[in-house]
Amino acid sequence: MTFKAIINGKTLKGETTTEAVDAATAEKVFKQYFNDNGLDGEWTYDDATKTFTVTE
């Protein structure tokens, strides 16, 4: 399945996608990506659209 992340950061904005077997796996991938890029913020997840949003 394809999962999307919308990034609303102070220094980084945009979208990225990942292929994962479930939402928990996708969340781990996205959180690692955000940690690697120095992002920290509020997380939400919309199961209907398979979209994570992080707002810094």
Rank of each mutant, 00 (worst) to 15 (best):
M1L: 12
M1D: 09
T2S: 08
T2I: 14
T2Q: 10
T2A: 06
F3K: 02
F3Q: 02
K4I: 12
K4G: 03
K4C: 11
K4E: 02
A5Y: 07
A5R: 00
A5I: 14
A5N: 03
I6A: 03
I6H: 04
I6S: 03
I6P: 01
I6D: 02
I6R: 05
I7E: 02
I7A: 08
I7H: 11
N8R: 11
N8V: 14
N8F: 13
N8E: 06
N8A: 11
G9A: 07
G9S: 11
G9N: 05
G9R: 06
G9Q: 07
G9V: 13
K10V: 13
K10P: 10
K10F: 12
K10Y: 11
K10A: 11
T11P: 06
L12M: 12
L12T: 08
L12R: 07
L12G: 09
K13P: 04
K13E: 06
K13W: 13
K13I: 10
G14L: 15
G14N: 07
G14V: 15
E15R: 05
E15S: 09
E15P: 05
T16I: 15
T16C: 15
T16Y: 15
T17L: 09
T17C: 14
T17H: 09
T17P: 02
T18D: 01
T18P: 00
T18S: 04
E19C: 15
E19V: 15
E19R: 14
A20K: 02
A20V: 03
A20F: 03
A20R: 03
A20P: 01
A20Q: 06
V21A: 10
V21P: 14
V21L: 12
V21I: 12
V21D: 09
V21N: 09
V21C: 10
V21W: 11
D22H: 02
D22Y: 02
D22N: 07
A23C: 11
A23K: 12
A23L: 05
A24K: 11
A24N: 07
A24C: 12
A24S: 08
T25I: 06
T25A: 13
A26Y: 00
A26N: 00
E27Q: 12
E27V: 07
K28A: 12
K28M: 11
K28R: 12
K28T: 07
V29P: 00
V29K: 10
V29G: 02
V29M: 10
F30R: 00
F30P: 00
F30N: 00
K31V: 06
K31C: 05
K31I: 07
K31L: 07
K31M: 08
K31A: 06
Q32S: 08
Q32M: 10
Q32D: 06
Q32W: 06
Q32T: 09
Y33K: 04
Y33M: 12
Y33V: 05
Y33P: 01
Y33E: 01
Y33Q: 05
Y33L: 08
Y33S: 03
Y33A: 04
F34P: 01
F34I: 11
F34R: 02
F34C: 15
N35I: 13
N35S: 14
D36E: 12
D36M: 12
D36L: 13
D36Y: 09
D36I: 10
D36V: 10
N37Y: 14
N37A: 13
N37K: 14
N37M: 15
N37F: 15
G38T: 04
G38Y: 06
G38N: 10
G38E: 05
L39T: 05
D40V: 14
D40A: 12
D40Q: 13
D40G: 10
D40Y: 15
G41R: 06
G41C: 09
G41T: 08
G41P: 05
E42R: 07
E42Q: 11
E42C: 11
E42D: 12
E42W: 10
W43F: 08
W43I: 07
W43E: 00
W43T: 02
T44R: 07
T44Y: 10
T44S: 12
Y45A: 00
Y45P: 01
Y45S: 01
D46K: 02
D46T: 03
D47L: 06
D47A: 12
D47I: 08
A48L: 11
A48D: 11
A48F: 10
T49C: 03
T49I: 05
T49F: 04
T49E: 04
K50D: 00
K50T: 02
K50R: 14
T51P: 01
T51K: 01
F52N: 00
F52R: 00
F52Q: 00
F52C: 00
T53N: 05
T53L: 07
T53G: 02
T53D: 02
V54M: 10
V54Y: 14
V54D: 00
V54I: 14
T55M: 07
T55L: 07
T55E: 07
T55Q: 07
T55F: 09
E56M: 13
E56C: 13
